[in-house]
Design a protein around this nucleic acid. Sequence first.
DNA 1: AATTGGGATTAAACCGGTTTAATGCTTTTT
DNA 2: AAAAAGCATTAAACCGGTTTAATCCCAATT
Lengths: 335, 335
Amino acid sequence: MTKKVTITDLAARAKVSVTTVSQILNGKAARFSSKTVEKVKQLQQEMGYVPDFNAQSLIRKSGRTIGVLVPNINNPFFSQFLRGIEAEAIKQDYVPLIFGSNNSEEQETHYLFESVRRAADGMIIASAVSDINYIDNILNQNGIPYILIDQAPVVKGDRVEANNQKGGQLLADYLIKKGHTNVVVVGAEKPTLNLQERLEGFADVYQKNGTPIADDRIITTQMTKKGGYAATAAVLAMKPTAIFAINDEVAIGLYRGIEEAGLKIPDDISIVGYDDIDLSAYIFPKLTTVHQPAFEMGSSAAQLIIKRIEDHKEPLQQVSLPVLLIDRDSVRSIG
Amino acid sequence: MTKKVTITDLAARAKVSVTTVSQILNGKAARFSSKTVEKVKQLQQEMGYVPDFNAQSLIRKSGRTIGVLVPNINNPFFSQFLRGIEAEAIKQDYVPLIFGSNNSEEQETHYLFESVRRAADGMIIASAVSDINYIDNILNQNGIPYILIDQAPVVKGDRVEANNQKGGQLLADYLIKKGHTNVVVVGAEKPTLNLQERLEGFADVYQKNGTPIADDRIITTQMTKKGGYAATAAVLAMKPTAIFAINDEVAIGLYRGIEEAGLKIPDDISIVGYDDIDLSAYIFPKLTTVHQPAFEMGSSAAQLIIKRIEDHKEPLQQVSLPVLLIDRDSVRSIG
DNA sequence: AATTGGGATTAAACCGGTTTAATGCTTTTT
DNA sequence: AAAAAGCATTAAACCGGTTTAATCCCAATT
């Protein structure tokens, strides 16, 4: 590899100052003679000059990066969400630094500090097992704007959400209409706010229906397929007619457990999920669930945070994306 | 937010030179009096000084980043692979810049240049729809070491692979033992080398068995669930007793298509996949497939590229990870 | 007393750019 | 003919660090 061409090299060969080169290449060429402009641009091609990114970052005080914290890259909802972020970020010449916290407070903190150290211009946080005030503190202290996904910020700030309360309600209405009042919920051990809301919306409807959900009918587990699978025994022991799995991953785990218990969905037991990961239309039977626009949530989040980065005075924005009940085959009507 | 503390501020308050501060904080403190060392460290805490990452990157000519190119973040195999990279990279104070090419040559090229522009210290490339020589050229020209996953580099270089040839053979042996000679393969439209090898290993065994697989029995489609689903009709039209789906995602798409065609797996038709994504143990019936150690492939790749980054003279390394047939329930014995 | 040798510290150059405030030269304007 | 205005260009400061090559001071040698 040939040694890297610097702006000084280019200036020398063009017999002009580095200032001139810099100005021209940054489009502030209005005041230069077209002869000079041509010469410089020509040489740039010839020598293959590309400005040093780190040098630019230093002086501009920005490396055009966005720190992104999710619980788990592996969850299809989040990987879709990340795709949305990536698409929008790249479009605006930013790059996401993606971190998976695995729901560990320790890792979350570590990644938070890593983002700070690397001088991320902003952050998108879809995982917050730690205290939100704590996060807010660290980030504020370092002047890094951030946006919480699906978690109402304690402090006011930009926000992207898909109405979880509503999603829960949709599901409850649906289940009640199909005759299911004997229901078990499989939720998170340490629920983030969005999960809480999801559950609240769900429980509210049942409450109003005169068939409230008792506390012991909410079983908690990890938000993974494995977690769902592990919860099966406890769930079935309560003999519900329907299960609300707080997300699709958990539902898939339950599918497996239920199958192995010799039961059939939806004939013997009904189940609904949440997220509408693309897989949910492939499993048997197709899962009835609430669609969250993961990709759009990602791209909106990126859009918002970039706006905030580039203009700290922008008025606060809240993007609320619609949720939608996807009626498929995992619930049957009962008498 | 209070304005950022610089090394100059700290030096001023400690009444020493910035050199002193820099040396001490970088552990080259051997020659400083313990009094000075203490004072500086004390003040660092007090003032919350953190060296500016961009400034460090400039002078060190490294931002400690690794560009990572995968076809699709959404594919569970790759998201697992990415987790492996992340874990190892972070451990060594690097950060991955993750890009999904979506198998588009255009995007791939774009991300390649983006990595170059951002001065990635190295790259891990698990997606190569473009000509490998082309990639090699760009990266070499810029002195960026890279490592190809599962793709034999045209030029010699470090390599991480899980033996695809072997994986294909395993599957073929298995299928033949179960009596399946009437087989259809569902492969990629633009197969990368690993997919080709997978298929070669598979076809070789059938060849040697005296029951070669005719060219028209290889159906190509996209490497997604949707792609698998879309291929169903063509596959079933050939009335095979077994299907080899070139990866699990495709297999899942086929599951759906087969179910909708009113057929039952494995009673009416058998199917095997490749990758052993965690989902394959959850679907019905559980999928027989070849396990690839995605996480380990990621962490090995990261380890290798970091070694290469930090010492360009290191001897070339090839890591070959074992593949393993996972015998589950999607194939029945016939004959 | 002059020289040597360390230990402790720092001035200054440098990394590769961007930006502000000049500096010359012409050309107009008064 | 002097002053003002315009155009093209650049010197120099700066971003926030790291590193090399001094410098300073005092104790130990010769």
